[in-house]
């Protein structure tokens, strides 16, 4: 575990060595800021519903961009070999990179705390849903990170990793809005698979174990899949 934290620290610092971090953060803030405030005054409600409503879609684009380099870059320049012949295990590496990506997403969310602060100055904001919304955002970021990590481990091409990761994340986000195509028998299952349903529950302030289990199992599937992919490379 100590090795995982050391790798996490290195990966987190590495984000800020390349321009990607700054570009991703800037785009994220721009997009969320624009969509949030463009309708905020029309709705005339002191809540962050709008911000959290959009988050799964925005994250579906942003998080794969954060995770795409984690394995793909290592595989393409071969540094993966130098890393794995240091005294670390596959699990250390996966955990380290996963934590780094989570930490980066958390860092990306910090500036958005300006939104609730602004809103609370304009009206009476209920801080409960805001707190659980941010918790949900972290879970969502973690789940998407695990998926992004998996797609990044599959290929040495970062663009492929990004596009495939994004496709999966968008699919999971929007699956509940495409249900008019599917037979009734699948309806319950597919609704359960939809990220949006679970995330909006949390963002409303409802902390249901089903939603937590959903996000944690997404993380588990992604990370376990990653470890299988890495194992196959040995």
């Amino acid at each position: 575990m100590r090795q995982a934290l050391r790798i996490c620290r290195k990966e987190f610092q590495a984000y800020f060595l390349s321009p990607i971090a700054y570009i991703v953060i800037a785009i994220f803030l721009l997009v969320t800021g624009w969509f949030f405030f463009s309708t905020f005054f029309l709705l005339n409600q002191a809540s962050l519903r709008n911000f959290f409503g959009l988050l799964p879609t925005v994250f579906a684009f942003v998080v794969p961009a954060v995770t795409m380099r984690l394995f793909a870059e290592e595989l393409s320049i071969g540094s993966y070999e130098t890393l794995l012949t240091l005294p670390v295990t596959d699990q250390d590496v996966i955990a380290g990179k996963f934590l780094a990506s989570g930490a980066f997403i958390a860092a990306m969310l910090v500036p958005t705390l300006a939104y609730p602060v602004t809103v609370s100055l304009l009206g009476s904001l209920d801080w409960g849903p805001v707190a659980s919304g941010y918790l949900g955002a972290l879970l969502l970021g973690a789940a998407y990170s695990a998926i992004g990590l998996l797609t990044s481990a599959f290929t040495r091409n970062q663009i492929v990793a990004f596009i495939v990761g994004m496709a999966i994340c968008i699919g999971l986000t929007l699956v509940d809005q495409m249900l008019f195509f599917v037979p009734r028998a699948l309806l319950g299952t597919l609704t359960y698979l939809a990220v949006d349903v679970h995330f909006q529950n949390i963002a409303k302030g409802i902390l249901d174990t089903r939603d937590l289990v959903y996000f944690l199992s997404l993380c588990f599937i992604g990370l376990y899949g990653t470890s299988l992919v890495l194992k196959a490379k040995h």
């Binding site: 590495a14 060595l17 320049i77 071969g78 540094s79 070999e81 012949t85």
Partner: peptide, 14 residues
């Protein structure tokens, strides 16, 4: 054991 892989693949950015 210290290992230097072929063509020393190291992190470019660091």
């Amino acid at each position: 054991l210290g290992y230097l892989p072929e063509s020393a693949p190291l992190y470019h950015d660091m």
